[in-house]
């Protein structure tokens, strides 16, 4: 989906910026959080944890919106997020949204 201008109510839109806490040694490498993150901000780390799995890490230059799906869908109690700050909706978000909606896969349904 393509936007041709910034939405008129962009001033009122507040986007929360989340901070992710990943407890690497609890992770068992099921990859649920990486697959189902709606913003696709996680990827498997190249490093191993103590059990020999690849825990998730934040992708560089990606932003968590504190939706909390990773916390809900993690079977191992190994990841959670909190709100760091809140910011305004900008044109960068439109570009990111267009990239995401044209990208492969989908996050949680609805």
């Amino acid at each position: 989906m393509k936007f041709w201008r910034l939405p008129l109510d962009a001033e009122e839109q507040i986007i929360p910026v989340g901070r992710l806490f990943i407890i690497a040694d609890r992770c068992k490498g099921c990859n649920f959080c990486i697959e189902f993150c709606p913003n696709k901000v996680l990827e498997a780390s190249p490093d191993f944890n103590r059990k020999g799995y690849h825990p998730p890490v934040m992708k560089p230059n990606h932003e968590c919106n504190n939706c909390g799906l990773c916390e809900v869908i993690c079977p191992e109690f190994a990841i959670y997020s909190t709100v760091e700050e809140k910011r305004r909706f900008t044109e960068v978000d439109l570009v990111r949204y267009e990239e995401m909606s044209s990208g492969e896969g989908k996050g949680e349904q609805e």
Binding site: C30, V72, I73, C74, P75, E76
Partner: peptide, 9 residues
């Protein structure tokens, strides 16, 4: 529970 099991969810 095994890796990939949904019980933890």
């Amino acid at each position: 529970w095994c890796p990939g099991c949904g019980l933890g969810i």
